Deep mutational scan, measured.
Amino acid sequence: MQRVNMIMAESPGLITICLLGYLLSAECTVFLDHENANKILNRPKRYNSGKLEEFVQGNLERECMEEKCSFEEAREVFENTERTTEFWKQYVDGDQCESNPCLNGGSCKDDINSYECWCPFGFEGKNCELDVTCNIKNGRCEQFCKNSADNKVVCSCTEGYRLAENQKSCEPAVPFPCGRVSVSQTSKLTRAETVFPDVDYVNSTEAETILDNITQSTQSFNDFTRVVGGEDAKPGQFPWQVVLNGKVDAFCGGSIVNEKWIVTAAHCVETGVKITVVAGEHNIEETEHTEQKRNVIRIIPHHNYNAAINKYNHDIALLELDEPLVLNSYVTPICIADKEYTNIFLKFGSGYVSGWGRVFHKGRSALVLQYLRVPLVDRATCLRSTKFTIYNNMFCAGFHEGGRDSCQGDSGGPHVTEVEGTSFLTGIISWGEECAMKGKYGIYTKVSRYVNWIKEKTKLT
């Protein structure tokens, strides 16, 4: 034993070699072989497995989906700052455009905790909710729209109204504003409101030439003092309507412009014939205590009207009353817009006519005020429907199939267009061939041609 100890002390290297040989010859039971080890760690190889990531292109799944990435790591994937920024906006807080917040056709661009709407022409605001041009839906104005110097929408209202708090709607500024039905039992019968379409306001006024200088022999019209197929109006439903009495009662109609003036057809009036105007009328054979009678003290036909040349060209006249009318729910003026808007309103496509005229061709006159909704007829169809001249200051309205029309005794009465609950004068009943005849239409004086003249002559002093 002493000898062994001496050998170990003198030859430590020998001992180490012996131990190493023993270990190498022993069977290893701690580690699995290569094949079995792979069965336990069965993990798919990654895209760049075996390579240094710093030297390969980034992978979106590896960089940002398996674990949260930084902007720089995302930049490695896209290799483009702009594309990385677009991805980053949604990656950080989701897609803010998912709810489609942009209105009126706006395009949404996502941002971090926010979004941006790219608005089409005519709109602005956070969600493109603000109209900035009158060309689109009248700028959301209830009545009139004008573009300011910086191309912003400025709404306005006709006389007797003021802008509401929203700067879009119009509200009454006087007790009985024009064009409004205020009798409670008839307010439910107000005709369907007309909503502004998209309009090209630059070209809204037709490029028409008034044929002022045409000389033409007097034409022989049949029954051209021209509501057939209409309905009984309720008291106060058309408070701007008046009836004219002269040699015979209810020979023509008219509309209240203001307390002192009536507008009617020029062919209705004769110099030297006494005319009485009755406002607030409903049943011409009954006294309903809503009527107001006034005498006409002055007749002003349009300066281009000449019955000797043509009885229905420039067929418009103004009547001055001896005493002002007292405005109330049964006696209310009709609204008159400017030339541009009167023309736009007419193009809405349908209007209402009213009167006490004959209820059928050569038949009896109506006792109760009649009204009828009539569609506008395109000019080409209008011209083809008659052998008589249709001037540019006239328009056609009615039904091709016949059966409904204005008729004798309705002449001078109103053709009105309702705009968001307020009625505007767009025409004056003038003439036609018979009444409600198939293929024939009622012919009306186009008020847009005469609004400046009306307003100039009827100013209240």
Rank of each mutant, 00 (worst) to 15 (best):
V4D: 06
N5V: 12
S11Q: 07
P12D: 05
L14C: 07
I15P: 04
L19M: 06
Y22V: 08
F31E: 15
D33P: 04
I40M: 15
N42R: 05
P44N: 08
K45H: 08
Y47A: 15
G50D: 15
K51E: 11
E53R: 06
V56C: 06
G58H: 12
L60Q: 13
E66A: 07
E66H: 06
K68Q: 15
C69T: 04
E72I: 15
E73D: 12
E73M: 03
E76G: 15
E76R: 15
V77H: 14
E79F: 07
K89R: 11
D95V: 09
E98F: 13
W118E: 12
C119S: 02
P120G: 09
F121V: 15
E129I: 03
E129R: 03
E129H: 08
D131N: 15
T133D: 10
R140G: 09
R140I: 13
Q143V: 00
Q143R: 00
Q143A: 00
K146E: 12
N147S: 12
N151Q: 09
C155A: 00
N166P: 02
K168R: 06
S169G: 08
E171R: 08
A173S: 13
S182A: 12
Q185T: 11
R191P: 13
R191N: 15
T194E: 13
V195K: 07
P197V: 10
V199T: 12
V199D: 11
Y201S: 09
V202H: 07
N203W: 06
S204A: 05
E208F: 06
I210T: 12
L211H: 10
D212P: 08
Q216W: 08
T218I: 08
Q219S: 05
N222A: 11
D223E: 08
D223F: 10
F224Q: 05
G229D: 12
G229T: 06
E231Y: 05
V243K: 09
L244T: 02
L244V: 03
N245P: 01
K247L: 03
V257W: 01
N258H: 03
V263F: 01
T264W: 01
V273Y: 06
K274C: 01
T276D: 06
T276K: 03
V278A: 05
V278S: 08
E281F: 10
R294K: 03
N295K: 02
H302E: 02
N304K: 08
N306F: 04
I309L: 12
N310R: 06
N310E: 07
N313H: 12
I316W: 01
L318N: 00
E320I: 01
E323A: 11
E323C: 04
L325R: 00
L325I: 03
V326Y: 13
S329R: 09
P333M: 01
I336T: 03
D338N: 09
E340N: 12
I344K: 13
F345Q: 02
F348P: 01
G351F: 01
G355L: 07
V359P: 05
K362L: 07
K362N: 14
G363T: 14
L367W: 14
V368W: 04
V374A: 11
V377H: 03
R379F: 11
T381A: 13
K387Q: 14
K387N: 15
F388E: 10
Y391D: 14
N393L: 02
C396L: 01
R404E: 05
S411C: 07
S411H: 10
E418I: 14
G421K: 11
F424H: 00
T426F: 00
S430K: 03
E433I: 04
Y444F: 14
Y444N: 02
V447N: 01
V451G: 04
E456A: 09
K457E: 12
K457S: 14
L460Q: 13
